[in-house]
Design a protein around this nucleic acid. Structure first.
Length: 345
DNA sequence: GACCCGTGGCA
DNA sequence: TTGCCAAGGGT
């Protein structure tokens, strides 16, 4: 039996029952694929269910406010996915008469859709034989063929796409694509795969050479920037607080947060009260300041380590442009801010 | 081509 | 505790 045959047989016996596997509606498949980018199935599942209930059609998604969409996306990370999803929904409705693109080439034009996602949608919904290459596929192929070319190098990206494209079952690309990803997720796992029950145990190059644990190779470690955040949580006598929207490019774009004072190192209260930025925010000589978290919160993002302090200030008077604390949940916020609010409010 | 973008699970 | 990595894509 060839690779595709063995793989498909394994898949039909071992696949999970996932909601997006019961439809070929391109809108639903698109939603699921965007949600699952760089995200584990278990983490994305609840978000998929929320989205299809809240936005049953692309028209519902297109006409929603961005805040509503970001609010539903809250906690999932990589928020540009949500902004691009909204942008593309509006494009489909306003410029394509609400009709989802039907070819790989046209699907690829959607913002937030790259080669992987276009291949997934085109194969699952329209039976186009474009091979998907995600983290699972890199791992399966690197091990099966014993390839130590870095998967994130230009050469690697090209090579693995070519290999996947050669292997794909032209008669049923949808099943092949989902099978190889599922195989990578369940059987050919990153750590401690049980090769004794693998259907490829007699043909896998990495198994033969005892290199399963070291493959695939990935080069370049990402540089992590350290930043120091001081959030100023103003509380008015009538239980109102101040939120700002992050408009600049960078992390958490378009999400909300408390007024932020960023410093080059950790600061204490004596340093804080000397800062002009603080007085611009409080609009008064400060009086009632307390630190919420005695030990700074270390919030780790893929490229940044944040050291965060929440400074709570009772303003003693009304706050301009403030919002009722009771309406806090209406605003999309980073999980860091959400966790603070959960604990404090 | 290099760098940026979140969050959570796991060993 | 730390590093890895997850159904990637944009700039």
């Amino acid at each position: 039996m060839d690779f595709s045959k063995i793989l498909t047989k394994w898949y039909l016996q071992n696949k999970r029952d996932l909601p997006w596997r019961n439809t070929v509606n391109p809108y639903y498949i698109w939603l699921s694929e965007i949600i699952l980018q760089q995200t584990r199935v278990n983490q994305g599942l609840a978000y998929y269910e929320k989205f299809i209930v809240t936005f049953p059609t692309v028209f519902d998604l297109a006409k929603a406010n961005e805040n509503t969409i970001l609010n539903l996306w809250q906690g999932l990370g990589y928020y540009s996915r949500a902004r691009n999803l909204h942008f593309s929904a509006k494009y489909i409705v306003n410029e394509q008469d609400g009709k989802f693109p039907t070819t790989y080439k046209d699907i690829l034009k959607l913002k937030g859709v790259g080669d992987y996602t276009a291949s997934a949608i085109a194969s699952i919904c329209y039976n186009e034989p474009h091979a998907v290459v995600d983290g699972n596929v890199y791992r399966v192929l690197a091990r099966y063929y014993g390839i130590d070319i870095p998967t994130n190098s230009t050469e690697g990206i090209k090579l693995f796409k070519k290999l996947a494209q050669e292997l794909i079952d032209l008669k049923d690309p949808a099943t092949f694509n989902q099978a190889i990803m599922e195989f990578g997720a369940i059987q050919c796992k990153p750590k401690n795969p049980d090769c004794t029950i693998c259907p490829f145990q007699n043909s896998c190059k990495a198994k033969e050479e005892k290199r399963v644990e070291i493959l695939p190779i990935k080069d370049k470690k990402i540089k992590v920037t350290k930043r120091f955040f001081n959030y100023i949580v103003l509380i008015s006598p009538t239980d109102r607080t101040l939120l700002n929207q992050r408009k600049q490019k960078g992390i958490w774009m378009n999400l909300y947060q408390f007024p932020l004072i960023e410093t080059s190192k950790e600061i204490d209260i004596s340093e804080l009260i000397k800062m002009d930025e603080l007085h611009e925010i409080t609009n008064t000589s400060n009086n009632d300041i307390s630190l919420f978290n005695k030990k700074p919160i270390i919030h780790k993002l893929s490229h940044q380590h944040l050291t965060v302090k929440f400074w709570v200030i009772n303003s003693g008077k009304e706050i301009e442009n403030s919002i009722p604390i009771s309406e806090f949940d209406k605003y999309p916020v980073p999980i860091l801010i959400h966790n603070f609010a959960e604990a404090y409010f």
